[in-house]
Design a protein around this nucleic acid. Structure first.
Length: 472
RNA sequence: GGCGCUGUACCCAAGUGGCUUAAGGGGAAGGUCUGCAAAACCUUUAUUCGUCGGUUCGAAUCCGACCGGCGCCUCCA
């Protein structure tokens, strides 16, 4: 399988360092706010990458860090007159909730920066000993001029950077590109003891320290949004490779932005929707389908119109899944087992996903599968249940376990608690009677009544079925 | 200024030299089924891939120029 590596700007054959193990690090949130739907795009796409690697049989160790100390958190705590710990805990909790709602598979571990201070100090100390860091009055900086490969990930050279450098006049830095490893504490800020006095870690150092501690000095995949390429990931390379003298990351993966009207969604621009607001309006599966329908690397616009269109697509998958579920419950034995080559769909799915996780084409395979199976179902009466088991397996393994665009468990959902299934069945019986007596006015009344409760009736050859729609 | 991404139907979007005289989703139009619906299925909806040149037996795909849109270089997925 192939994977696009930002470092080489080419698709490369994926060969993990220690197969079948794969180590994967994803830059997680800074917990000073709810994360927005643009962040969610990166998280979900990383989730799909991870799940596909697992589908392929790799043993993936997936880690996502939580930045729980930084300027934004301190500012937020000040604004809300809370402690930084309370702010960080609150939003970390919210992060876990939202990520779960997005149906992301849980990471193997979510390391927190504040629980790895000593590891970070260790890395900084070593950098200082090796001459890559310098201390000015308790602020420790990384000396970019000492790392000759600086800029190799982002394709920047230090001369260009300096000439185009925007502000950040810091008298203490030798060079404007130097970045903070350890930040001297100001009054009232959270701080830890260190060889350079009380202070707190810079942002970049946490990923170097935590990635190394939990995944090793060299890892297979390090992922994050495009905006992290420079300076964040560039700085991580500078730190880790100067410190440990070995290649930090084999494959760098970066995700495109979610835009609003062609502009990057970002917290600083204020043009964002939080993931939880969007999750209140649309099912996670529809959101994931929306993301999966575009290649992960490019930009993607966000709008209600686009989300609605994805939701329609999701309902198409859902309709088939529900049909399958009903048929499996009926457990009918018959001689009718239609010819159908499920294997072809598995191999198509793998073929496109093997090509740098081409999820849009994977989604297309799923929809091809849906059309083909719907056709068979429409053209055959009384199909043996075993046929449906095969279909379910396919959806389970691909659409659910890898893409997460359907959730097969508990499909006869409980979205609307205002009415229970027995009441619905009773009304359906009443309507059937009315239909038999050609009292279509009453029959339609019942149907309308149910629609208002979020219940859609469908008259099929075998009888009337219903489904509950999400009345969000 | 440097580095990078991007321009494909009404909308979203895949495809990066012949398998594609261009996937898939949404929308629209017509049809089948149905008491009517819903769901589902069938048909139609780009001889064309920002523009202009070039390379090639052959290009949306390679090269050049030009015109748009976006991002990073400052915290940001």
């Amino acid at each position: 399988m192939k994977i696009y590596n930002t470092f080489t700007k080419t698709k490369e054959e994926f060969q993990p360092l220690n197969p079948p193990n794969v180590t994967m690090y994803m830059c997680g949130p800074t917990v000073y706010n709810y994360f927005h739907i643009g962040n969610a795009r990166s998280f979900v796409m990383a989730d799909i990458v991870r799940r596909y690697l697992e589908y392929k049989g790799f043993h993936v160790k997936f880690i996502m860090n939580i930045t729980d100390v930084d300027d934004n958190i301190i500012n937020k705590a000040f604004e809300e007159k809370k402690s930084t710990i309370d702010v960080a805990d609150f939003y970390a909790e919210a992060f876990f909730e939202d990520v779960k709602k997005l149906r992301m598979k849980e990471a193997n571990f979510y390391p927190k920066a504040t629980l790895h201070i000593s590891e970070m100090i260790g890395v900084i100390k070593r950098l200082e000993e090796k001459g890559f860091a310098y201390n000015v009055n308790g602020n420790v900086f990384y000396d970019v001029s000492k790392f000759s490969d600086y800029g190799k990930l982002s394709g920047k050279n230090t001369n260009d950077l300096e000439s185009g450098a925007r502000v950040d006049v810091n008298e203490e830095k030798k060079n404007p590109l130097d970045f903070t490893l350890w930040k001297k504490a100001k009054d009232g800020e959270p701080s830890w003891d260190s060889p350079w006095g009380k202070g707190r870690p810079g942002w970049h150092i946490e990923c170097s320290a935590m990635s190394t501690k939990h995944l090793g000095k060299s890892i297979d995949i390090h992922a994050g949004g495009n905006d992290l390429i420079f300076p964040h990931h560039e700085n991580e390379i500078a730190q880790s490779e100067a410190c440990f003298e070995q290649k930090f990351v084999k494959y760098w993966m970066h995700f495109g932005f979610l835009n609003i009207q062609n502009e990057k969604m970002s917290k600083s621009l204020g043009n964002f929707f939080t993931a939880r607001e969007v999750l209140d309006k649309y099912p996670a599966e529809a959101i994931r389908l929306f993301f999966a329908q575009t290649n992960y690397g490019g930009p993607l616009n966000f709008s209600d119109e686009l989300l609605n269109s994805a939701q329609k697509g999701y309902e198409k998958i859902l309709n088939l899944a529900e049909k399958i579920e009903r048929e499996i419950k009926l457990n009918s034995r018959s001689a009718v087992i239609p010819e159908f080559d499920v294997k072809k769909y598995y191999s198509d799915f793998e073929k496109v996903m093997d090509d740098d996780f081409n999820s849009p084409q994977a989604v297309a395979v799923i929809f091809d599968f849906i059309r083909a199976t719907n056709k068979i179902i429409a053209e055959n009466d009384n199909i043996d249940s075993n046929f449906y088991h095969g279909l379910k397996q396919f959806l389970k393994k691909t659409a659910e376990n890898v893409l997460g665009i359907i959730h097969l468990d508990g499909l006869s959902n409980e979205l609307n608690p205002n009415i229970d299934n027995e009441q619905i069945e009773l009304l359906i019986k009443k309507r059937d009677m009315a239909k038999k007596e050609k009292d279509f006015i009453l029959a339609d009344q019942i149907r309308t009544e149910l629609i208002n409760l979020g219940i859609i009736l469908q008259d099929n050859k075998t009888g009337t079925t219903f489904k509950k729609i999400n009345v969000k």
